[in-house]
Design a binder for these strands. Structure first.
Lengths: 339, 339
DNA sequence: GTCAGGATTGTAACCGATTACAACAACTGC
DNA sequence: GCAGTTGTTGTAATCGGTTACAATCCTGAC
């Protein structure tokens, strides 16, 4: 079953069939209709490998993430895939596992499969790897770390606003001893969130106690350990803002283990709003970073960059504003009590 | 940069380069070495589309799951992808979203991309869709619902043994009023788990109280609602076994909301051992169904079915034995007390 | 020295589409 | 009635590999 069979049945050449399939306007409506009927009758669908070879476009987008088992990503992958499939594209997902060697393999996979564009949703992408995509003229879109001036579309998350919302919320509840559990310092977005927090506290004239600025690893165990250290302090915080939800979940776990209640004894705010956060007890107050919005922008960036008719498009910067979701892990500052 | 460039540099024909790349044994060691040096020097890598077109093998495996945001799947996807990439394969992941229409699209995507094999890790695959793979001579492997007699490899999970371990554990802790919260009845594996539980109770001579056999939906909200109903009973259970971890997490949420403690007031056992289960409070006692093992078998099934030299291989049935992981959500039956 | 036969290498057809270019038909205006 | 357009379709080269088959080179036996 190939294009020739369709051509024979419709009594046209393979060129006309091809043009019909690809929606060329150079086919007479009546002819196109005949071709479509032949396609329908034969149950024909094109061989994508031949298409890719002939046209130089694979109709595949690459999606590079750090780790699909990190709950931040599944929804992002799903949304991206959804959008791609609806537009006739396929998606290849690759995990860097936070390792440079694996990242190199990811890039190689993308190049070998001749992707028509690549969305890089992780920050471990060295300049020499970016260069390989550049050389292959492959459109790119990054999360946070793109550079439109260099032809790389970017999805810019307004961490400052998101973190500020969290601080505002906590402060409005009366809290003044606010701790922060950050992410790993080698992660760009974690550093940004930390900076944003410090700036937000400063802007409000709150003193920044270095002891309350903890470092985690964006995983549950990191949140746990950091909270243990915070509980060891002479002057404990009354509220904690975590750099992501997993960290917040770990922190809450430690609080429970110590017999402390959330939010009565301590308020906790997360970041990201991973799916499970809404279902925990207490349901987590957090700053939602919409993965659907990220996926949407990522796809659009690649899709419009790849349009042939209009020639190469300039790289674009998209902005995403996170949104505070108030649930049950935060409460007004309780009157101080001694156990 | 194509195979001709390599051939020129190594002073051989393209056929010899191709044979070298594909590890044919018909190339003299010295020649092969020269070709490899040329490949190295030019930084050449083959065009996979051309390869697929010429050889009829795409080096892509399809992986059909129901929903990547279901925490059961990410680890499975990751393991499968890992194994595939290590063996020079690419993976296309498709979500059915539990819907027949989407499932049909998934199948179509696989056929269009000419996958060399497909792992179906969900049970919504109608016979007519299976038939399309059959017609395309595409090796298949299913989870639980395969049929080796019909050429479909199968990964058989011994739910009976797994559930029995859970029951044994609960019974050995002194519990006799044991409730079960099942999954959706239209899900094959959920029905199997339910059957296994009933059989296990019966085998132990425990009376089966229909009111204690609840139905959930394999999501957190289903577990919650089911537990609400169980708490409404005059004679509450002292232990609950859930059909999967999300259900157990929902159940625990409801217990907490009612001021009941786990495991002191009620023991809870999950199934699957999703990643987060180890980090909850209390850490969930559960029956681990290794996703790495599933991925491993799935890949092996497809890989050996696709070997050319040995001709078509018969479909195989693999077995997986789940394993009880005892954590902190189960405890010995407490002496009865009236509030 | 010759020759069978295995090992190695090359030639060229083929996979199934896309697309530049040529060819042709129909229509326009003069 | 004819040249010039415009619109539609066909021809055939092309993409970059794989692989059947042919050709050549060696080797050792006789």
């Amino acid at each position: 079953m190939n294009i020739q069979a369709v051509a024979d049945r419709a009594r046209v050449s393979t060129a006309t069939v091809s043009r019909t399939i690809n929606g060329s306007n150079k086919v007479a409506p009546k002819t196109a209709e005949r071709v479509r009927r032949a396609i329908e009758a034969l149950g024909y669908y094109p061989n994508t490998n031949a298409r890719a070879l002939g046209s130089g476009r694979s109709r595949i987008y690459g999606l590079i993430i750090s780790d699909i088992t990190n709950p931040f990503f599944p929804e992002l992958v799903k949304s991206f895939e959804d959008m791609a499939v609806r537009n006739g594209y396929e998606v290849i997902v690759a995990n860097t596992g936070y390792s440079p060697e694996r990242t190199e393999i990811c890039v190689q996979r993308m190049l070998e499969r001749k992707v028509d564009g690549v969305a890089v949703m992780t920050s471990e992408m060295g300049a020499h790897l970016i260069d390989r995509f550049h050389r292959g003229q492959i459109p790119m879109v990054f999360l946070d770390t793109g550079d439109p001036a260099n032809g790389i579309s970017n999805i810019l998350v307004d961490y400052t606003a998101g973190v500020d919302d969290a601080v505002e919320h906590i402060v409005s509840l009366g809290h003044r001893h606010i701790a922060f559990i950050g992410g790993p310092m080698d992660l760009a977005s974690a550093r940004t969130r930390r900076q944003a927090l410090l700036a937000s506290l400063k802007r409000r004239g709150l003193t920044i106690n270095k002891a309350l600025i903890e470092v985690g690893n964006h995983r549950i165990d990191g949140g746990r350990a950091a909270m243990e250290r915070l509980l060891d302090l002479d002057e404990r915080p009354t509220a904690v803002i975590a750099s992501n939800d997993l960290t917040a979940i770990g922190a809450i776990g430690t609080l429970h283990r110590h017999g402390l209640r959330v939010p009565e004894d301590m308020s906790v705010v997360g970041f990201d709003d991973i799916e499970i956060s809404a279902f925990l007890h207490p349901a987590l107050t957090t700053v939602r970073l919409s993965r659907a919005a990220i996926a949407d922008h990522a796809f659009q960036a690649l899709h419009r960059a790849g349009r042939r008719e209009t020639g190469p498009q300039p790289a674009i910067e998209y902005r995403i504003r996170p949104e505070l979701i108030v649930r049950n892990s935060t409460a007004p500052l309780a009157v101080k009590r001694r156990p």
